[in-house]
């Protein structure tokens, strides 16, 4: 049994860089994105092998699933843009832009190419050597975390680190997510191109079945996060997947969410987190110092609020712009279903 797992480890460790290489070398962008998503799934397998189930869940949902969906929808939009461009110019002379220059350049400047490859190989070997040379610090902060688990209010060590010991990091991280939504909204607006598009019966049924299930799963993940793998990010990511499904299915309810409510939903998590952090100072404690034995309750409260915001924010990132004035976001219909179902399956 051990040998099988060891063999599996070797294959996995070799497959990761190989996939990465294939993905960047492929001339077809769609293929590259698909390879990227499969790389993400392999990564989450790797996390499982490395005994990091929390990270595995987050990687599968966010790293592979949502990021992949983002890439697919961006690719779709790029293609649509260049199509309309081509139609305007009556000629396909832009085609070469995407595929040929890299190859051309590689042929044109093999010296530079080989040189940069050589430098990178040297870099990897040097770093690998130094990593092998230096024994790591034994356990890092692990013992310190284990020693204080009693006061953390939760059983899961990762959740304790994320929301108690290093909760301030997570607070700022929520700000990063909020900032991303702000950035996307400031840059562009969702276009209402396929207003009248109706989802096929399969997708509609799927949505009706999956979305409630996903909401339950998200709630479960947040709840279980205090003792096992799971938590706000994983739960939020599942919520986001539900949101993406709704967007794909072009459900009218999603389009009719008032913009004000959407804004509040984006802000809810970070705001409540921030206010809780400050409220902790009320009793004479420090920032984010949960009073007395109540840490567990506060953490669950923060996690629920942030999970909602994470879900809404990630779905908004997928929608790819601020809602158009009259109604709420709706998005691409062709490329997405694959990724949406993909996520559904994982949830």
């Amino acid at each position: 049994m051990m040998d099988v797992m060891g063999f599996f480890d070797i294959v996995l460790a070799l497959a990761l860089p190989w996939l990465g290489w294939r993905l960047l070398a492929s001339s077809d962008l769609f293929r590259a994105v698909v390879l990227f998503i499969s790389l993400g799934l392999l990564m989450s397998l790797t996390w499982v092998r490395l005994q990091a189930p929390d990270v595995a869940l987050a990687e599968a949902a966010i790293g592979a699933g949502l990021t992949g969906a983002l890439f697919l929808s961006a690719l779709r939009r790029l293609e649509r843009l260049s199509e309309s461009e081509r139609r305007l110019e009556h000629a396909g002379k832009r085609e070469e832009d995407e595929t040929i220059p890299p190859e051309k350049r590689r042929r044109a400047k093999p010296v530079a190419y080989v040189l940069s490859l050589f430098l990178l190989v040297v870099f990897v070997l040097l770093l690998g050597w130094s990593l092998g040379q230096t024994p790591g610090a034994k356990g890092g902060l692990g013992p310190a975390v284990a020693g204080q688990m009693g006061q953390s209010g939760v059983q899961s060590q990762v959740t304790a680190v994320l929301l108690n010991f290093r909760g301030y990091d997570t607070l700022l991280e929520m700000m990063v997510l909020f900032l991303a939504a702000l950035g996307v909204w400031s840059l562009t607006r969702v276009r209402q191109t396929q207003q009248g598009e109706v989802p096929g019966p399969v997708l509609a049924t799927l949505v009706r079945l999956l979305v409630p299930l996903m909401i339950i799963v998200a709630g479960y993940l947040v709840w279980i996060g205090s003792s096992r793998a799971g938590g706000a990010f994983q739960g939020g990511a599942v919520l986001a997947a539900a949101g993406v499904l709704l967007l794909l299915a072009n459900v009218t309810v999603v389009r009719q969410v008032p913009a004000g409510l959407l804004r509040w939903a984006l802000v809810l998590g970070p705001l409540l987190f921030l206010l809780t952090a400050v409220a902790c100072m009320g009793g004479g404690g420090n920032l984010l110092e949960y009073p007395g034995q109540s840490a567990g309750v506060w953490i669950l409260f923060i996690e629920s609020a942030t999970a909602v915001s994470i879900g809404v924010t990630l779905a908004a990132l997928y929608a790819g712009g601020r809602p158009p004035a009259p109604s709420a976001p709706e998005k691409d219909n062709e490329e997405g279903p694959g990724s949406g179902v993909d996520k559904g399956g994982k949830a």
């Binding site: 040097l126 130094s130 990593l131 790591g136 034994k138 890092g140 902060l141």
Partner: peptide
């Protein structure tokens, strides 16, 4: 990440006391 790996600590002041020349530190 490499600093954490070799010293197991993220605090700047504590790190400053632990720093000693090693290949990983230079990297």
């Amino acid at each position: 990440a490499l600093l954490y790996r070799s010293y197991g600590i993220l605090d700047m002041a504590a790190l400053a006391r632990l720093i000693s020349p090693a290949p990983l530190m230079w990297a």
